[in-house]
Every structure is written in structure tokens, then in C-alpha cells.
Computed example of a mutant assay.
Amino acid sequence: MKDTTELLKILTLEDVGDNNFSGVSKDIGSPNVFGGQVLAQALNAAYRTIDNNRVLHSLHSYFLEAGNLELPIIYNVQTIRDGGSFSTRRVTAHQNDKTIFILACSFHKKEDGYEHQMPIKKDLKQPEDLLSWTDMLDQFGDFLPKKMKAFLSVERPIDFKPVQVVNPFDQKDLPPVVDVWFKLKGEPQDLTLALKQQILTYISDYNILTACLYPNASKAHFGNTQMASLDHSMWFYRDFDYTDWMLFSVESPNSFGARGFACGNIYTRDGKLVASVAQEGLMRPRKE
């Protein structure tokens, strides 16, 4: 995928009847289906059953089995409730009669209320002063570990610019914090709020577990650690657009027992808090 148009083609499912929707997968450099893709496709399926103009405000999900890149994924949507203010949906994803993923999500009618938000971090480097993943590949590709080079070589519809650039050969423990600017490639115009939320859900599964690795970076890295998303939750607050860079600011409060937990906030560049994310992931040291 090279731009937003191609991403939307992957996220927009085929209606195969009886609240069932079919999706295909795209390789992003890992052997299994990318968790963010399954999240966003399941959300696309749920939104297709909402006809009362309600807007997603939260989702909670579990990854049960690794997805096969070669097989279609069938998403079944159950209407749990359509109340006076909220609508709830449950989505189950299947491959070959095996359940690989479940999602519960809630949609809210537009209402006025009180407002506050946590501010964006101050004094962060701006995107213009940072290297993107593509820049890193171009400048340092010959010196990067083989797996990292292969991952960065995959064409993506998003540009990522990490604020903290870590030397993979400088093995030292780091604070459990990751700040990444991101921007869609192409011209993302006339996107509905539903589509913007689906794209943001896709993006939210990138970078988040990195914060769990950093406190043990003297001995742990992606090459010697089996990592996978176990669950994923999001809360959506405000409308936004993708015309400028956005910030995903992540921290990891804990890792223990071969699992790591991370949470973060997503901001527009001018500091508007758009969404919050929480995820626990597998962090299993690989045996020699």
C-alpha cells in the first residue's frame, strides 16, 4: 500500500449478506495479518450496521489467533443494543471456521457536555526536524539489522517520524516512552468521521508495544522477543482531519510475565486530543 486510497480499499469490506462482511489482507512485513488491519476492518463492518448517525466512542477487542495472510477474513456483526443514546455492536472475525478476533464497540448520538483534556507534550521536536522511517532506510539501510531493514523497506500508506531515534546497536535500557509523529500519504480529502476513525484504528497498532521493550533494551529487542497484540482498546473524543502531522504519545507502565502494557494519547499537531489507546501485548523472550 502506497497511499490512503489503497488503505481504504483494504479497510472497506464486501457485504456478503446477513451482517457478514469479507475482507482481504495486506502484508506489512510480518508473517501474520497485521492487528491494526483486523481492528479497522472489524470497525468498518460494525459501522455498516449503524444507520442512526451515531459515532463510535469506544472499542474493546481481543486477538485470539494469528491471521493467515492468504485467506479472506469473514466478519460477523451482532446488534447487541440500539438504545436511546447508545448503540452497541459485537464483531467476530473468522478464518476457516476458526475465530481469530472479537470486538465490542459502542456508538453515541451527538450531545453537548462539559469539556477538558490533557495537554500535548511541550518542547517536542517537530516533524520537519526528524527523520521518517523511509529517511532512516535511505541513510542507514546498509548498517541496520536485517529484520529491521526488511521491515522499513515495506511500502506503507503512512509516514512515521519518531521523536526518539534509537541506535539498534547501542544496547542500553531506556525510559518506557515513545512519541511518534505520523501523517497519511496522498490527499485524504472528504473523509467521513467514520472513515477517519477506521484509519486511526489501523494506525494505533503501530509503535505502541515499542514502549514496553525500551526499559529492557540492553537485552531485549524485536529480533529476540516474540511480540504480538493480545488486546486493544480505544476511546474517541473529537473530530479531526489528516491534513497535518499528528502525534501518538505512548508510555508503558508495566511489563511482567511475558506481557507488556502500554497506553497513549493521539493529538492533532495543534494539541487537540483525538483519542486514547491501551494495549497489552505478548513479550516472550525467544529461547536460544
Score class of each variant (00 low, 15 high):
H108D: 04
A104C: 12
N68M: 09
F107E: 06
M118V: 15
S58A: 15
T92P: 01
S61P: 09
S85Y: 03
T99G: 01
V91W: 01
Q117N: 09
R89S: 08
H116L: 14
L59F: 09
Q78R: 12
R81T: 06
V77P: 06
A66L: 05
T79D: 14
Y114F: 14
L69T: 03
N52F: 04
S61L: 11
F86N: 10
F101T: 02
G84T: 07
D97E: 14
N76C: 09
R81A: 08
F86W: 10
T92M: 11
E111L: 13
E111W: 06
V55R: 13
R54Q: 15
D82E: 14
H94I: 00
L59K: 09
H94G: 00
A104M: 15
L56T: 02
V55L: 13
S87A: 15
E115N: 11
A104R: 07
G84V: 08
E115C: 02
Y62M: 03
L103V: 14
S85L: 06
A66M: 05
G67C: 02
H57L: 10
I74V: 14
S85P: 03
F86P: 08
E70Y: 00
T79M: 07
I100P: 00
T79N: 15
M118G: 00
M118C: 08
K110C: 01
E65S: 06
I73P: 02
K110L: 06
G67T: 01
P72R: 07
F63W: 06
E111S: 11
H116Q: 07
Y75S: 14
S61K: 03
I74R: 00
H57Q: 13
D112Q: 10
D97M: 02
R89A: 12
N53T: 13
L64W: 02
H57G: 06
S85T: 13
Q78T: 15
S106N: 08
P72D: 02
Y114Q: 10
G83K: 05
N52L: 09
R90F: 09
H57D: 07
L64E: 00
P72Y: 04
G83V: 10
G84M: 10
T88W: 03
I100S: 00
A104P: 01
V77I: 14
I102N: 12
H116W: 08
M118P: 03
F101V: 01
E70P: 02
T92C: 07
F107S: 06
G67S: 00
K98M: 06
F63S: 07
Q117A: 14
P72T: 05
E70V: 02
N76D: 05
A66W: 00
L103C: 09
E115Y: 11
E111D: 12
N52G: 03
D82Y: 03
S106T: 10
I80S: 10
D97S: 09
F107R: 03
I100F: 00
H57A: 09
G84F: 13
L59W: 06
T99K: 12
Q117E: 14
A66T: 09
P72M: 01
K109Y: 10
G113K: 05
T88F: 11
E65G: 00
G84N: 14
Q117V: 05
I73L: 02
C105R: 01
R81G: 07
K110A: 09
P72G: 04
F101R: 04
N68I: 12
E65R: 07
G83S: 08
N96T: 00
G113P: 08
S106R: 04
R90D: 11
Y75T: 05
H108T: 08
A93L: 05
